[in-house]
Nucleic acid binder design. Structure first.
Lengths: 149, 149
DNA sequence: ACACAATCATTGCATACGCAATTAATCAGC
DNA sequence: GCTGATTAATTGCGTATGCAATGATTGTGT
């Protein structure tokens, strides 16, 4: 096997590892957040993204990017959360095509309840993953991720 | 903000980065593999896992782990691929609860057609991701992943 | 000013998913 | 050798998803 073939195999293995770690974390978050806060992972992700905006609002598209969802899925996700009273749609004046969403007090409450649970799970699962030789390099790389510009 | 809070934030940011990179790769693979080979990512993953068994067969459960799927989803995925003639179910004699699956010649053909496409996409997307400062550390860590024991 | 392209969000539709219950086969204790 | 617990895979059911088409608004070129 030549050098080029090695590179192919290394990439494929890296991708499998990434996918395995991602699935491990997501499955666990899904279970625990669902049981303790009644939130799915994407739902938590939306609340988290809105909260990190620090009281400011976000367009649907930004939300879609943050949650890695299609526009249609984002619409429905926001509708679900709105129906539960966790966020509100705000028609914004400067561009009446766009729609902003912001957390309600209830949404903030639930987020603040879910946040420590979210981190506990993350800490535990990342700790377990760090003990697996095939996952450890990626786990450690996550510590070195820079803040968003 | 104290050291403990920093650790929380670092973990959360690492997880968001991991999820973002995963979604980026998966979305692109989904599009391109679907267009060129008529395969979804999980479908390719199954063919790839079976092929890496080098002609040998795999239990449903192993397949489920490899594809990060629930048992029920695995059943249906295998059924779909079987209906397309890409793999076959084999009742194995030593434990008649378990069911083995193996690639058909057609399945192997399709896999061998899809494999180079899969790698091209991986190379391109990982290359693009390496140019993004927030993703780069994880991308580079993937190169250092060890072979499975 | 007006027509036409582009953008943002939403809906119809088909599909893949997970959970919980079910069926089939093996294993453990006695 | 039989009964009950365990494990493997499958099905019923509800739900979240993506794609493609649509509606509503803004931007652009003449």
């Amino acid at each position: 096997m030549g050098i080029a073939d090695d590179a192919v195999e290394i990439r494929a293995r890296g991708w499998r590892t990434l996918a395995a770690l991602h699935a491990l974390i997501e499955t666990e978050l899904e279970r625990e957040l669902g049981a303790t806060a009644g939130l799915s992972v994407v739902e938590y992700t939306v609340l988290d993204a809105l909260n990190r905006q620090d009281g400011w609002h976000m367009r649907m598209q930004q939300l879609a990017r943050a949650a890695a969802l299609s526009p249609s899925a984002t619409t429905r996700l926001v509708t679900r959360l709105e129906d539960r009273g966790l966020l509100t749609r705000v028609l914004c004046a400067d561009d009446r095509r766009g729609i902003y969403t912001e957390l309600t007090p209830a949404g903030l409450d639930l987020y603040e309840k879910a946040h420590p649970i979210h981190d506990e799970i993350l800490e535990r699962v990342l700790g377990e993953a760090a003990d697996r030789p095939e996952l450890a390099p990626v786990v450690h790389a996550l510590q070195g991720v820079e803040a968003v510009a």
